[in-house]
Nucleic acid binder design. Structure first.
Lengths: 258, 258
DNA sequence: GTCAATACTCGTGTATGCACGAGTGTGCAG
DNA sequence: CTGCACACTCGTGCATACACGAGTATTGAC
């Protein structure tokens, strides 16, 4: 048999030294981030398996993991589908996040060591010199928040926050697409970091909570706008939304080399 | 081959209608709760597979799930082992829990509907008439807290709290083994529920946080006592702790019918 | 006797095969 | 034309097979 050697002709399996399972997880995660997999869409093992050119086993593991994290949920038909968010869920998300981020900031103010404080300051500096691209801002923003979580020195809080933030890609475009959000966010980040440097837990928590509340408002703006745009696109394209989507070539990433 | 039909002679596969994977998860969870699997102990797929008389596939899924939840962690040798807790981790656990429980109580005070308030009151009533058994108290306590989480009407908070509480079995005996804990806890529970009934979020949060802080203190008492007792037992039994534990029959549940 | 190299054991990662069950389309009877 | 029953499709759950790699024991040389 010639299946001793994987022998993938494609050169696109540039995954790190980790296993196919983790790789599949990353690919699915990216597919959700990029919008290739839309919320509510059904995700089936054979399909993903064919897409990634690996067997169902690692795909299965990746999907179960995403299910455990809440990115995938039980589909009505019995399988799994990309989790659906409604505006209420977004409100719940930010309420939880406000609590956790506030606690993280407070703990960081109490527990951060000198190195961590230095890193926070330098990340903040880097954010001041950022171009106008929402993606760049989003990435640095994520880095800063992650550093705050680390500085809190609380493994459970860290894990809870990471799990919670996994849900962000489902919300759509970043909040930095809201006009003027970057400047305001920078101001808020400065307040949080200043309170951490001053070792003032109460102030750090208050600043962090305020930051998240504002992020929530921006999120609502962006999402409602997205929903409106999508509705317009839909009504413009197909007058009667046919329920049968069971054709041959489905949505999933056409990763075929051809 | 006769493997068309599972044909398990034992009558102990009384699992609910769910699949073997969930069943394996429950069994492992129980094994950890019961102390059959001790923290730090290595857990290997073939072993569990043989124990539960199912193939490695569902065992694997259960273990990955527990890993995602933090109950299992990477073992030095490359496999998985039951997560180890130290006193610092317990402190971190309760700090996170205090934040989440406080938020849950506050949200419950704001969002609980009449039915939920009634259920809370009746659970509290039931707790007043409980016998002295720590197990009974622990179970009702869990029920009350779960009802508060539900009443908060926040799916993300609910999931975060459930994931966090998964870690409790690793901490050992329940805090109701601390003398006098049951009475104090009942008083604290009454305060939380009263604040929720009064629709006072700030008071509910304060009461919940106080409750968790006290639970933390009881936990520290119980755990330090356990550690001391274990140390005594160890030093009494074997003067020189041999490192080679690689014998034939290992710890895992001797579920053999023989 | 000690060190090093080799062979072996065993656990994990992945692939594949098979059975069951739900959803669906089709054909027949009314 | 409508309703029901049967067969089919397909996705999931589980089991088994195989390869790789890390750790370990054994054996040989110095």
């Amino acid at each position: 048999m010639s299946l001793d050697i994987p022998e993938r002709g494609d050169g696109d399996d540039e995954r790190g030294g980790r296993g196919r399972s983790d790789w599949a997880y990353d690919m699915l995660h990216e597919a959700i981030r990029e919008g290739t997999l839309e919320p509510g869409q059904r995700v089936m093992e054979p399909e993903v398996s064919a897409w990634l050119r690996i067997s169902r086993t690692p795909v299965r593991e990746a999907m179960r993991r995403m299910q455990a994290e809440g990115l995938l949920e039980h589909a009505p038909g019995g399988g799994l589908s990309v989790a659906l968010y409604d505006l209420r869920a977004i409100g719940e998300f930010y309420a939880t996040r406000e609590s956790l981020e506030g606690t993280a900031a407070a703990l960081a103010a109490r527990n951060a060591d000198d190195t961590e404080r230095r890193i926070l300051a330098s990340t903040l500096d880097a954010m001041r010199k950022l171009p106008d691209a929402p993606r760049a801002h989003a990435r640095e923003n994520q880095a800063l928040h992650e550093q705050i979580y680390q500085a809190a020195h609380n493994r459970f809080l860290l894990k809870s926050l990471r799990t919670l933030l996994n849900f962000v890609p489902l919300l759509g475009r970043t909040t930095y697409h809201a006009p003027g959000r970057a400047e305001v966010a920078l101001r808020e980040h400065e307040a949080i970091v200043a309170a951490i440097q001053a070792r003032d837990p109460a102030e750090a928590e208050a600043a962090a909570r305020l930051h998240i509340r504002h992020a929530y408002e921006s999120r609502v703006h962006v999402v409602t706008e997205d929903i409106r745009a999508a509705a317009e696109r839909r009504s413009a394209r197909r007058p009667s939304p046919g329920p049968g989507e069971r054709g041959s070539a489905r949505r999933p990433p056409a990763k075929d080399g051809s």
